[in-house]
């Protein structure tokens, strides 16, 4: 058992930090803006699709990651505009974008799957180092994840960051203080999905392929990570929320990896994740504790 825990740790750290950036994005939409954004499943695959296509076209992996991030930002903005301009319910706006992105991603890739094992990606120089593969890769993903976490924390201490937090907390109040809450929602969703697409672009290179289905269940996995993290770290401040997202993501991947070692069928992964989230959200209600509802706008 202990051996299993240790053996699964490196892969959990690698994936935990890589997917932790998705959880950071979901913190912005669900936790800060209180916007239940389901675009994530589409924008994660969008990131992978954009970077895979660009690498195949001969663009450098780093530039490809940058453009994938921009694409994610635009996708998030679209969801925001559907909600604020066209007054489409927040949940529906996200589902619509997710559906639209499925076709967009197929168009971008030209087929449902692009493999990247035989071409140079940003992973290649890391793997060519003369040490255990995990060391540089974990270090790289951890550095990117913590870098983004710190930038996010700093952003939410600025004037615009305050306005965005208040938009999720009390929209009416911050509007009477002169903030265009629609712009804040659009910008926040853009940032959130930019993070998600960035993660998708890196994960695609890490696993060696981009696939049309790679984003499926991402939102639930991200939420599971956040819930686990908040139990461990707390959620009193923005810095804690973002730290919880990263720690939760590693813990989630670890639980999954151990589960797989103990005989959990890979096909049952999403079921297990779903049950995890249902239990985490449902147990307080069953215990009839003080109701701590997920505060979400437009639901």
């Amino acid at each position: 058992m202990l051996d299993g825990l240790l053996r699964t740790l490196p892969i959990s750290l690698e994936q935990g930090f890589a997917y932790g950036i998705v959880a950071l994005g979901i913190v912005i939409s669900f936790r800060i803006l209180a916007f239940p954004d389901l675009t994530v499943d589409g924008s994660f695959a969008l990131g992978g699709a954009v970077v895979a296509r660009l690498i195949m076209e001969g663009v450098s992996p780093v530039y490809g990651i940058f453009l994938a991030t921009v694409a994610g930002f635009l996708a998030g903005c679209c969801t925001g505009l559907l909600n604020t301009r066209l007054k489409i319910n927040s949940l529906l706006a996200g589902i619509l974008m997710m559906t639209v992105l499925y076709s967009v991603n197929l168009r971008i890739m030209g087929r449902s799957n692009i493999q990247l094992l035989t071409v140079d990606t940003f992973i290649t120089p890391l793997e060519n180092l003369d040490i255990n593969r995990f060391v540089p890769i974990i270090a790289f993903f951890a550095a990117v994840a913590f870098g983004i976490k710190i930038l996010t924390d700093l952003f939410f201490k600025t004037q615009i960051g305050f306005a965005m937090r208040a938009t999720g907390d009390n929209e009416q109040m911050i509007r009477t203080l002169g903030v265009n809450t629609d712009s804040m929602t659009v910008l926040g969703l853009g940032m959130s999905n930019a993070f998600v697409a960035l993660s998708g672009a890196m994960v695609a290179q890490d696993q060696g392929f981009a696939d049309i289905g790679m984003g499926i269940g991402m939102i639930v996995a991200g939420l599971a990570s956040i819930i686990i993290g908040e139990t461990l770290i707390g959620k009193q401040t923005v810095a804690r929320k973002t730290l919880a997202a990263l720690a939760g993501s590693v813990a989630y991947k670890w639980i999954i990896a151990v589960g797989l070692r103990l005989g959990l069928a890979p096909t049952d992964l999403k079921l297990a994740t779903g049950v995890m989230v249902i239990l985490a959200l449902g147990i307080p209600a069953l215990k009839k504790e003080k109701e701590e509802k997920l505060h979400l706008r437009g639901v």
Partner: peptide, 29 residues
Amino acid sequence: LMGTAASMSIEENLAMADLRGKPRGLKWG
């Protein structure tokens, strides 16, 4: 409950009110 942002501190709420109607940028809140 409608006049303040509950998840933010007293100081942060006052700072937001201090900027009423003014453009907001990337300076410290």
